[in-house]
Every structure is written in structure tokens, then in C-alpha cells.
Design a protein around this nucleic acid. Structure first.
Length: 408
RNA sequence: GGGGAGGUUCCCGAGCGGUCAAAGGGGUCAGACUGUAAAUCUGAUGGCUCAGCCUUCACAGGUUCGAAUCCUGUUCUCCCCA
């Protein structure tokens, strides 16, 4: 019976799943050999992937390896998700230009739950082995940690590009940061990883895993690196730049975000975040960029929220952005009569929560960005009186509210 | 342990004791334009009871009519020497 087998698919399908969108597979021939054997013996490979709960939310950049894990999981491989509660406290220096604050156990614990919940949006957690690395690192004790540190030299560590850059730029590098690659590498030993997935910035850490596994007489893991995608505007994806799309974002947020993606980035996003075939992707990219991008948004938002919600979000985008019409549902707020029957426009906008300060309101008003029932007002001091009926108040293109008369 | 250089507004970074809410760039916001909330161009960008007032330049004191700029102490970072 075919379905009594744990591994599904042909060697070619397995190789393709590993290779799709991968930047590097080290070593490719090693992977093939191990796959042949795995398939022959129907013995799933252990695919390691680590996530540090260092910030509370995952974005689409994080989802890239998750999608690959999902593919591999569906072929029957065993995904081992390491929730790096110990490593998170150290902080991954990869791609870091700054020393970052050490997280406390409490902060890490708080992020931990949201992390697995978010990973579950892509992965089948029923078929995922989830382990926390604090388990073994806590047990290791001082002596164990000391032993671990003897496995690499400072010269080997400092070879790393991020350390190089920071050192030559005169920026601080914490000693704790040297621990990070060793810890991540040791995780591979603990879970006996056959393959480890990681972003290209993880190259060094992944290599340390191979080294430690060899030292422990394990077969060194195959490394598969996935590209790091930039944010929507081409800069590094980061929540603080406001250029990321979160895994928990609504269909609307995903769609509106993806529609402003740089055109040039579309090819990579299609390949990494959708499972459309490569010929189809090529076809889409030949067509109008807007059409292609709309499809990308539909695919991604559809994956997380279903076709219907994605289609609705696409409609909303067309209506509000392309056709510059008002959103379907506009928040309403009532006139606050405790402030009297009239209010200076700048203050009113702040009261309504449309701006953060009256100064910001003044700026928006003076620059012609504020409309009262469609009419532009440019005097921040003009006294607005309580409306008789619903009034549409707009600040810029994005902020809209209905102002209603005070409760009778 | 010794010596030197630094910590400036969201970020980077300039800043003769008064003319500094503090150059410039990035980001952000607003306007124009656009297939797009992209790109490009223009303007704005601490707060407020806004032609004036209040709070900012690591922290705490001090000198001075007056300090981001001078002094003292504290703290953090980097570099060189040991």
C-alpha cells in the first residue's frame, strides 16, 4: 500500500522541494545520496529549523523557510522546529549592526507562544517536532558551556563578516555574541539534524553545526539557505520601517502592503511565497506589473485567509487606492459635547484621534491635507461647530472618519 | 591599570557661550503626478492655550546675565598601550 509509506513522491520531487528558491545547498550531492537512501528505507530525514523568539511577530520574510518546510513535511520528512529560548537570550549577531539588549526569560517566554502559533499558520504542527533549546543549555551548566567554547577560536569567530564589519567600524561586539553560533551549532548535534534550513545570513551558524556534528561523530548536516527578501520598499524588512507584512496581518493589510512592493522584487516573492509553477510565474512577470502584483497579493493573502477574503481585499484596494474612493467601512465618532459646541479644527482632529498632536494637525491643515465633507480647510484655528449630521473628516489619503452629532 | 576619542532631536550625523528647537541626509507626514499607498518632484517634520510660550542635546551638579557648547562627578561605547 502506497499510503502506508511515510515518504511520498519521487527522488526528483524531493530534490525539487529542497532546491526551489534555495540560494545554496551544501552539499547537493550529499543531499541526493541521503535522499536516495531515505527513500529506499522509507526513513524520513530530520529537517531542522530554528526560530528565536526575540520579537513578538513573524513576517513574510520568516515565512520563506516555513513554506519550504511545509513542502518537505508534505513529502513525509520530519520537521524539527527549534524554538530558541536559550539562543534568544543571547541574541543572534547575524546581520546585526548593533549590540542588542539581552532578553530576559520573561520576554522570551512571552514571545514563545505567539511564535509557535504563527509558525502554525504555515506548518502542520501535528507533524512537527518542537523543542526548546533551553532544555539542554540549562542542563549544560558552566562546565558544559566552557567545553563548548573550546571548540572554536576567536580568530575563527572573528572571520565572520558581521563581526569584521562591526569591529572595523569601531562598533561594540559583545562576548556573549560569540556564544550564539556555537549554541545554534550544538542544537544540530542535539536533534541529530540531517538538514538545516536557514536564511543566507545563517551561513556561518549553519557551518558551525556541521563542524560540531563531525566532532561528535555525526554526519554533518546538509545546509539549505533561503534568500532574505527585503521589505516592500527594498530596504531590509523590519517592522520598525513599516515595510513588512506580518503573518497575522489581515487579508486587507497583506493585500494593501503587497501592492506597494517594488516591481523588481516580485519574481523572488512569487517563487518563495507562492507555490505557483515557475513557468506560470514567468508568464505573469511578462505581463503588466500591476496584474502580476495583484495575483501575488491574491495568492499570499489567499493562503493565509482564504480566497474569499483575499478577493474582497483586492476589491477594496481597487476601490480605495486605484479609484480613490472611500473605504467601505469608515470608523465613526461622536462629537464630545463636554468640550463645548465649537472646537478649533486642529484640536478637533487630535480629539478624534486622527493625528497625534495638535502640531501635526496644524501641519496637515496648512498643507491642504485636511478635508471636511470634501472641502479643504487650511486654517487650523477655524472653529468647527457640532455637526447637525454625519460629517466626513479626512486627513491625507489614509485617515478617514465620520463625525456624528453628540448623543442627544 | 595608563592614555586618547566620544555619547546631539525617530535613525545617521553637524553644531565659534548668546542670532539653536539645533545644519545636512535617511525615515515619516502632506501636496502634485502615477498601474501602485512605488519612483520622481515640492513642502513640512519636539510640544502647546501658536506672530508667543514650554520641554529637549547620556545622567547629576556647578560656573555665567545666558550653556548642546565651559568645569566637576557618574555612567556607557570605541581606540591605543600594558
Amino acid at each position: 500500500m502506497a499510503n502506508s509509506k511515510r515518504l511520498k513522491g519521487t527522488l526528483g520531487e524531493h530534490m525539487a522541494a529542497f532546491q526551489r528558491g534555495a540560494v545554496e545547498v551544501i552539499e547537493e550531492r550529499e543531499l541526493e545520496k541521503r535522499l536516495v537512501r531515505a527513500l529506499a528505507e522509507d526513513e524520513p530525514m530530520r529537517i531542522k529549523f530554528g526560530m528565536d523568539p526575540s520579537s513578538p511577530d513573524l513576517h513574510l520574510g520568516h515565512a520563506i523557510p516555513l513554506f519550504k518546510l511545509r513542502d518537505l513535511q508534505r513529502l513525509g520528512h520530519q520537521v524539527v522546529l527549534i524554538v530558541g529560548d536559550a539562543t534568544a537570550m543571547v541574541g543572534d549577531p547575524s546581520g546585526r549592526s548593533m549590540l542588542r539588549p539581552v532578553l530576559t526569560r520573561e520576554q522570551v517566554a512571552a514571545n514563545l507562544e505567539t511564535y509557535t502559533a504563527q509558525a502554525a499558520l504555515v506548518l502542520d504542527l501535528e507533524r512537527t517536532e518542537i523543542v526548546r533549546n533551553a532544555g539542554w543549555f540549562d542542563r549544560m551548566g558552566f562546565e558544559g558551556i566552557l567545553q563548548l567554547t573550546t571548540r572554536m577560536t576567536v580568530a575563527q569567530m572573528v572571520e565572520r563578516d558581521t563581526f569584521q564589519k562591526r569591529l572595523s567600524a569601531g562598533e561594540p561586539v559583545g562576548i556573549n555574541e560569540f556564544l550564539y553560533p556555537l549554541m545554534q551549532g550544538w542544537d544540530s548535534v542535539e536533534v541529530r539534524a540531517d538538514v538545516e534550513l536557514g536564511g543566507t545570513d545563517q551561513l556561518f551558524n549553519l557551518l558551525v553545526g556541521r563542524r560540531l556534528q563531525e566532532q561528535e561523530s555525526q554526519r554533518p548536516q546538509v545546509m539549505v539557505t533561503t534568500p532574505l527578501v527585503n521589505g516592500l520598499d527594498g530596504r531590509k524588512m523590519s517592522k520598525s520601517y513599516g515595510n513588512s507584512v506580518g503573518l497575522t496581518d489581515s487579508a486587507r493589510e497583506m493585500t494593501f502592503g503587497l501592492m506597494r512592493l517594488d516591481d523588481e522584487a516580485m519574481a523572488v516573492w512569487f517563487l518563495q511565497l507562492t507555490r505557483l509553477g515557475e513557468p506560470e510565474i514567468a508568464e505573469l512577470l511578462k505581463g503588466h506589473p500591476r496584474t502580476a502584483k495583484a495575483r501575488l497579493a491574491l495568492e499570499v493573502a489567499g493562503f493565509f485567509h482564504g480566497e474569499k477574503a483575499a478577493a474582497e481585499a483586492a476589491e477594496a484596494f481597487n476601490r480605495e487606492v486605484r479609484d480613490k474612493e472611500l473605504p467601505a467601512d469608515i470608523p465613526e465618532i461622536r462629537w464630545d459635547s463636554s468640550l463645548g459646541s465649537t472646537r478649533a479644527l486642529a484640536n478637533l482632529l487630535k480629539d478624534m484621534g486622527l493625528v497625534q498632536s495638535t502640531s501635526e494637525a496644524r501641519r496637515a491643515i496648512e498643507q491642504g491635507g485636511v478635508r471636511w465633507n470634501g472641502e479643504v480647510h487650511t486654517d487650523p484655528r477655524s472653529e468647527m461647530s457640532e455637526p447637525k449630521e454625519r460629517v466626513l473628516v479626512q486627513v491625507g489619503k489614509k485617515r478617514v472618519m465620520h463625525l456624528l452629532p453628540a448623543e442627544a
